[in-house]
Design a protein around this nucleic acid. Structure first.
Lengths: 116, 116
DNA sequence: AATAGTACCTTGTATGGCCAGGTACTAAGT
DNA sequence: ACTTAGTACCTGGCCATACAAGGTACTATT
């Protein structure tokens, strides 16, 4: 069991949440999202992002339109659906609660000296 | 794709982190941990907790001793090893960074009106 | 035509949560 | 002594999903 492994696990859960937030700001395509996430130090690779976007689309949370590019193949620009907005606001709540709960547990730890 | 599913995913990642924290406070056995996590609204069931504890032990992050109980079968009381303490302090750092990164992304979203 | 850059997608593997069920110990009732 | 209930620990199989590696396809440049 490696620290890296657990750190990946920690990031995993909120990835979908972050991507929905990024899309909620306006039209973006995959590379935009990768850049945004990377600059926030949430590491994601293509092989994670594309299947995730496909899942979100199949679930009716996002939709896309093809847009021609002058510098390569056309791009899929994503936007949030109404259903996606509702979904996201539920996740917002879950995220807040999760941070609260976790901080509560962490802070209890600090009170006691765990060294024997 | 259900909200519950994603919410589970969000909780998943920090579960190991929370459990290490709870153990770091002092000797506890499985039911103590379940109670603590449940009261912090982080839902966990036995089928999740026991395999996780086994993994942590195999990785040398925690250890346990058997303690007789007056009201049933003996219990495994867990404590953190030195290796576990180091592991945990790395996770502390990761958690802080993750909350920062996520909040940054969330707050950017608020600035723009996403309705079309 | 060949190469490079960009964009999207898929297959296979590994991790890990969860469900459902199982084992084993103690205590209480009959 | 047997059964039932409560407690504690564990496991096999399923499913979701991150990631690595490789593939397809479009555009621009040489």
């Amino acid at each position: 069991m490696k620290v890296e492994n657990t750190q990946v696990q920690m990031r995993k859960g909120i990835l979908e949440f972050c991507i929905l937030h990024i899309i909620s700001r306006g039209e973006v395509y995959a590379s935009d999202m990768l850049e945004e996430l990377t600059s926030a130090r949430i590491i994601v690779v293509e092989g994670t992002l594309y299947p995730l976007l496909t899942r979100l689309r199949k679930a009716g949370l996002v939709e896309y339109k093809w847009v021609e590019s002058t510098s390569g193949p056309p791009r899929k620009y994503y936007t949030l659906t109404n259903k996606g907005s509702e979904f996201l606001s539920q996740l917002d709540k879950t995220w807040k609660e999760l941070v609260d709960s976790t901080n509560k547990i962490i802070k209890s730890s600090v009170k006691k000296d765990s060294s024997k």
